[in-house]
């Protein structure tokens, strides 16, 4: 009979044994190119999407980001692309209070990080086709689609090097708020009640080697059930959040480490 090793990480199908962990399988994403387009939205409308305990930050900002992840250690040097949506939030409960971002949804074009992200960290990941970004006439573009229908188009243009003051301001704004959070929710088999229902935080460490700022543009699509039967409600909800004011978009290059020994993923109190 298969016996689970309680000292190791398991995912379905668990009966084949623990996930591989060995030399070269660290949490480092060695080569990450990312575009981030933040914009201010309507706080009360955003609040409708947030589960209990979360409320929009004083300035209700949505950040739509794309990342082209290459040289991913735990994928033996392979990579994948993602497009995600974060909301600036404050989490408050009897146990703790935390400022940070709430992951509304993340699309990825590879199954493996979707499964690990959902099962181990509580990140709301779903699948989409996400081709590599294009750069033409200094305009960076990317998009996600599923079942042949576009979900979102993202564009960043007018790139320039940031002023040092902008870097310092960003550092200051992030101080104490570098807390990505999510809702780990799995329904019971044969019931609509949750089997697993917890909020999580999953810190990572970004080493940015290059940053440029520019003007961003996000275009959400309206989709029907026929066009994208599993995600149309997600896309339409995001489209319904108004884009009130774009903030400077960023192009960054660098590396990311998802495993911080002193800040491992954990359930929120």
């Amino acid at each position: 009979m298969f016996k689970r090793d309680p000292t190791k990480s398991h995912m379905m199908p668990a009966h084949f044994g623990a996930r591989y962990h060995g030399p070269g399988s660290s949490g480092w994403y060695r080569d990450v190119t990312a575009l981030t387009v933040p914009y201010v939205t309507d706080g009360s409308q955003l609040a409708q999407l947030l589960p209990q305990g979360f409320e929009p930050a004083a300035e209700p900002i949505i950040s739509v980001f794309y990342a082209c992840n290459r040289q991913v250690d735990w994928l033996a040097g392979r990579g994948y692309n993602m497009i995600g949506v974060n909301a600036d939030v404050t989490y408050r409960s009897d146990g703790e209070s935390l400022g940070g971002t709430f992951a509304l949804v993340i699309w990825e074009n590879l199954t493996d990080p979707i499964l690990t992200g959902r099962e181990l960290q509580g990140i709301p990941k779903v699948y989409a086709d996400i081709p590599d970004h294009s750069v033409s006439n200094d305009v960076w573009r990317c998009n996600a689609s599923h079942f042949g229908h576009t979900i979102v188009d993202i564009e960043v243009s007018g790139l320039r090097a940031p002023e040092l003051e902008e870097i310092a301001a960003s550092e200051k704004a992030l101080k104490g708020k570098d807390n990505p959070m999510g809702w780990r929710y799995i329904q019971q088999a044969g019931s609509f009640e949750p089997k697993l229902d917890e909020y999580t935080t999953f810190p990572s460490e970004n080493h940015i080697t290059q940053i440029m700022l520019g003007e961003g543009k996000v275009e959400w699509k309206n989709l029907s059930w026929e066009q994208n039967p599993t995600q149309f409600h997600i896309v339409n909800a995001l489209k319904s959040l108004p884009i009130l004011d774009y903030r400077p978009a960023a192009l960054t290059k660098g590396s990311t480490n998802l495993i911080l020994p002193d800040r491992l993923p954990r359930p929120l109190k």
Partner: peptide, 15 residues
């Protein structure tokens, strides 16, 4: 080239 270099140095100096 100037833009590339400044975008490379800014995160170093700015932090």
């Amino acid at each position: 080239m100037k833009r590339k270099v400044l975008s490379f140095l800014a995160p170093v100096v700015g932090t």
